[in-house]
Design a protein around this nucleic acid. Structure first.
Length: 574
RNA sequence: CGGGAUGUAGCGUAGUCCGGUUUAUCGCGCCUGCUUUGGGAGCAGGAGGUCGCAGGUUCGAAUCCUGCCAUCCCGACCA
């Protein structure tokens, strides 16, 4: 490709809207251009990278016997009502105003609707289907360029099995394909156990790239034996010891005390573990016959409730609104607790750290009053103990052998075992060997195409620009004709270019005549193609041309035929 | 949706507090000519603006007031 007719609008200055390195560099290297918040045009150079990533994904999906589809982005409301997700997604789904259609944010429904009339016998199973397609999500806050966009490309795959063992096999095939994909893309990555998002199913793993600009918090053990999204992470639980004094609980006046910090200060203590922190949640009714339920959570004063963990115990749970709080407890936030609740429909759930703890202090469900000497074992009937707290940096792993470190990461892929939720909701059943009907057992597997590119750039850049390597580089070689106005230089660069092309190399040829050498070198470093070949008057006097490795800046001057002969070796080292 | 910030040419910006020699600043980029060609060239000339939008105050508004819109950041949210 000749740069003189390839459109790469590089920018000398950092656009003021971009903050994180991958976003800045994608804009500066002319890969993408923002159209509106969270929506990007892919320019020729960026598209080349995204297409390469798609190519790798496609190869690895095909390798495991996954069938490529291409489904529409437009999708009838009816289908989403059937699965219950029109309401579930709420404002996050784009709706078409003049038709009963949505722009699909994902494709479980549509794929299942295809499976339903076709995968009707165990003889049709298993099947694995995928597509690489544009997704639309009305993200409340897009950020980081293509890291979180409202329109983006996703590889989404779905498996259909007739048994749970079959699901395990499909899941593992996908899992292995993911490892090959991210490895081929040149990412340093790891996987973590993850939140299933409340969509049912059991096992779920996210593929993560560690980055200070990532949106996910993960807990990683120092010995590498454990990694989990903070939403599900567990640690060795340090129990609050039972004192056994059997002191009677008593109410006391705490004027103006609203937070655990204020309570600790009021009491003049620093250890907050016995200050039981209470929060009220509401569980919506799951069926017509059911009533709304309330859940009061208790964690140590120095802990936080993990709402994702809570969601797994109580589906669709949400925090109570202030007015609900008042009517359920009789008090406002800051004064609520497990004793003396106004409503009798409250399930009290304490974190396992507080199992059978006593001498606790909590709100009295009366503004400006707290109660001391609460004994959960003695005073709270029907209390449940669950792991509902957020794990903290520096805690021990659950086996006590290593220490957990908190880190940020970019999620580039997510695989999980959906189970039968969708098949049941959409009525996709098959007959087994005995003629019995069962719902299809599904798995769902996603990869963010642009996110891989962004994550790669986060891991591979320096002060001058991107440092591509491996299979996703837009080109392998950047041929720079330092001064093509010189007949000699032009003739030799043209000759080298055609030799490289006939050798099957992907070459970006900077043949621009009206641009100074400095601009060419700066652009080459910014775009970051791994190997530069430089043809200049100076070197030609010694009958030489030059190779430069973008990443480490190493250079070598040699006769041009020799360079071309040694290219396979040079390219091995990038 | 809460909190913060910003909006001036393709990009980056000065001016805004304290309204008036402002014909809106400067750099990059762009156009023309000449020179230049190993790290974002030099000289000369030139084009390019509803100062986000709408209203208001005023003799006079980029500047003050009101409303709206857009973009970014933090948070909430994000199977």
């Amino acid at each position: 490709m000749k740069l003189s007719n390839f459109f790469i609008p590089t920018l000398k200055e950092t656009p003021s809207d971009a903050v994180i390195p991958s976003h800045v560099l994608m804009l500066r290297a002319g890969m993408i251009k923002q159209l509106t918040a969270g929506v990007y045009s892919y320019l020729p150079l960026g598209l080349r990278v995204f297409r390469k990533i798609e190519g790798i994904v496609r190869e690895e999906m095909n390798r495991i016997g996954c069938n490529e589809f291409l489904l529409p982005a437009l999708s009838p409301n009816e289908l989403w009502q059937e699965s219950g997700r029109l309401d579930f997604y709420g404002d996050d789904i784009f709706r078409i105003k003049n038709r009963e259609l949505v722009l699909a944010p994902t494709h479980e429904e549509v794929f299942t609707s295809i499976a339903k009339p076709s995968l009707v016998s165990y003889r049709n199973l298993p099947q694995m289907w995928y597509q690489i397609q544009t997704k639309f999500r009305n993200e409340p806050r897009p950020r980081g360029g293509v890291l979180r966009a409202r329109q983006f490309t996703m590889k989404d795959a779905y498996s259909f099995d007739s048994s749970w063992e079959g699901l395990d096999r499909s899941y593992n095939l996908q899992r292995e394909a993911y490892i090959r994909i991210f490895t081929r893309c040149g990412l340093k990555f790891f996987s973590v156990t993850a939140f299933n998002g409340g969509m049912g199913g059991n096992e779920s793993e996210e593929f993560m790239v560690e980055s200070q600009f990532g949106e996910d918090m993960v807990m990683i053990s120092e010995d590498g034996s454990y990694a989990a999204n903070i939403e599900v992470a567990v640690s060795e639980s340090v129990h609050v010891a039972r004192v056994g004094s059997n002191l009677m609980h008593e109410k006391f006046h705490t004027p103006g005390v609203k937070s655990i910090e204020e309570l600790a200060e009021f009491l003049g203590i620093t250890d907050k573990s016995r200050l039981a922190k209470s929060r009220m949640f509401v569980v919506p009714p799951s069926g017509e016959a059911e009533k709304e339920k309330y859940v009061l959570t208790l964690v140590c004063g120095d802990d936080e409730v993990n709402e994702a963990k809570l969601f797994n115990i109580f589906p669709n749970i949400r925090p109570a609104h202030p007015d609900e709080l008042k009517s359920i407890t009789g008090a406002d936030a800051g004064s609520i607790g497990p004793l003396g609740l106004k409503s009798s429909d409250v399930i009290i759930t304490a974190d396992i750290r507080l199992k059978d703890a006593d001498e606790l202090i909590s709100g009295a469900n009366e503004n400006d009053y707290h109660i001391r000497n609460i004994d959960l074992k003695r005073d709270v009937d029907g209390i449940r103990y669950e792991d509902i707290r957020v794990v903290k940096h520096g805690e021990k792993t659950i086996d006590g052998k290593s220490t957990l470190r908190e880190s940020r990461a970019i999620e580039v892929g997510h695989i999980f075992k959906l189970g039968t939720v969708f098949a049941e909701r959409l009525g996709a059943y098959f007959l087994d060997e005995k003629g019995e009907q069962h719902p299809l057992i599904m798995g769902s597997y996603g990869i963010g195409i642009e996110r891989i590119a962004a994550a790669f750039i986060e891991q591979n850049h320096d002060k001058d620009g991107i440092t591509w390597s491996g299979e996703i580089s837009p080109f392998l070689i950047n041929l720079i004709s330092v001064n093509p106005r010189s007949e000699k230089v032009k003739a030799e660069s043209d000759r080298v270019y055609s030799e490289l092309l006939s050798g099957g190399y992907e070459v970006l040829y900077d043949d621009r005549e009206d641009v100074s050498p400095g601009v060419k070198f700066k652009d080459a470093d910014l775009i970051g193609i791994p190997l530069h070949i430089i043809v200049s008057e100076k070197n030609l006097q010694n009958n030489e041309i030059e190779v430069k490795f973008r990443k480490n800046g190493q250079r070598e001057k040699l006769n041009s035929d020799e360079i071309i002969n040694r290219l396979p070796n040079f390219l091995k080292n990038i």
